[in-house]
Amino acid sequence: MIYLELFWEFFKTGLFSIGGGLATIPFLYDIGKRYDWLDTSIIPDMIAVSESTPGPIGINMATYTGYMAAKLPGALIASLAIILPSVIIVLVISRLLSSFSQDKRVLNAMYGLRPASLGLITAAAFAVLNVSVITYDTFIESGNILDIIDLKAFVLFVCLLVIRIFFKRIHPILFIVFAGVVGIIFKF
């Protein structure tokens, strides 16, 4: 029964992948080895589509796999199955935390956690910057110092940064839509 297999496999993936959508990739290869409804040769394409479409990567990959295996019902089952374990776990933790939220130990742990978590976010932002604005790899190949930044992208980046800092009220969604349009017009 393909629906049950999809449910069970993605339930396990949701339970054991910790730390972001890309952590699900090894699980997908493992599923592909054991079932014929997932062709592992399309996984790289799925990753590319999942990264460049709206939505969290992990959900996109589950939906994609589910759809390829069993159309829309498959997509629904796979994405619900992958979130089910974490929704249950998060609800349980939330329940526990609400009774310990004023506990000194919890507060102290959070005090140390926040800066570290922010460090990880900064590293992730740095990685996005490194593929979109800074083109270090092109520079290494050509040896031309001008290649170290993508000029068009850099101008857009600085403009958006300044607008974001000075006009706090503009919704982030508008920035994303605007940048998408600019990207198409100026052929980024």
């Binding site: 992730a124 979109s132 857009l156 994303i176 998408g180 198409i184 980024f188």
Partner: peptide, 24 residues
């Protein structure tokens, strides 16, 4: 067009996230 749009969007995402990081 999809490729160009997403290249632009990545720039916006980087700028937005950096400002949020400064706040945080």
């Amino acid at each position: 067009a999809v490729g160009h749009a997403f290249a632009g969007i990545r720039v916006a995402v980087a700028a937005l996230v950096i400002v949020t990081i400064l706040d945080m």
